[in-house]
């Protein structure tokens, strides 16, 4: 499990302070941390436990229960591929094979250049235009291997522009 540096921890302590008064604050805190540093660092868990007055094991238990939360730093782009039935009916099995082979990673893995992390997802509510994938907060529909390559090209061009 990955940890974060002192500066990151301070940021996390601030996040915890902002949310800990909420009723049932655990998930809001975990979301806020992951939104800000991309994963739930191992050394953040004792802070959460203390703030919410629960054991560290309980924080671990919650983090591991939910597919959305990750304990390792992901690649720059998290690509979620829908495995739901509607997408299956439109060829998502072929699509997921093509994506895995294009990125040379399997689900729950990050490419060696730290660009991409691949995750399965079970329905994005885009079932009228299956198959669907999600990258960041963007949802793409009617994706086939060809369209996926275009989406990927656009992502790479965009990240180059930023540099």
């Amino acid at each position: 499990m990955a940890v974060i540096n002192e500066q990151g921890l301070q940021q996390i302590a601030e996040i915890i302070k902002q949310h800990q008064m909420l009723a049932g604050a655990m998930l809001p805190i975990l979301h806020a941390i992951q939104n800000s540093v991309a994963f739930i660092p191992d050394n953040a868990m004792p802070l959460i436990a203390k703030a919410l007055n629960v054991s560290r094991a309980e924080v671990h238990g919650v983090v591991s229960f939910y597919h959305h939360f990750r304990t390792e730093k992901p690649g720059n782009h998290v690509i979620e591929v829908c495995r739901g039935e509607s997408c299956q009916a439109m060829g998502s099995r072929t699509l997921e094979r093509a994506i895995k082979s294009k990125l040379a990673i399997d689900y729950h893995q990050t490419s060696s250049d730290q660009q991409y992390t691949l995750e399965p997802v079970y329905c994005l509510g885009n079932c009228a235009c299956s198959p669907a994938i999600r990258i960041g907060d963007d949802i793409h529909g009617e994706v086939d291997p060809g369209k996926f390559e275009q989406i990927l090209d656009a992502l790479t061009t965009y990240s180059l522009e930023l540099k």
Binding site: G24, L27, H31, G61, V62, Y66, H67, H68, V121, Y122
Partner: peptide, 23 residues
Amino acid sequence: RLGAGAYICGEETSLLESLEGKR
């Protein structure tokens, strides 16, 4: 409040546990 990618949290009692901040 946001869920976190667990189908079972659509079941109402699991949902309530989740809202309370638990598994």
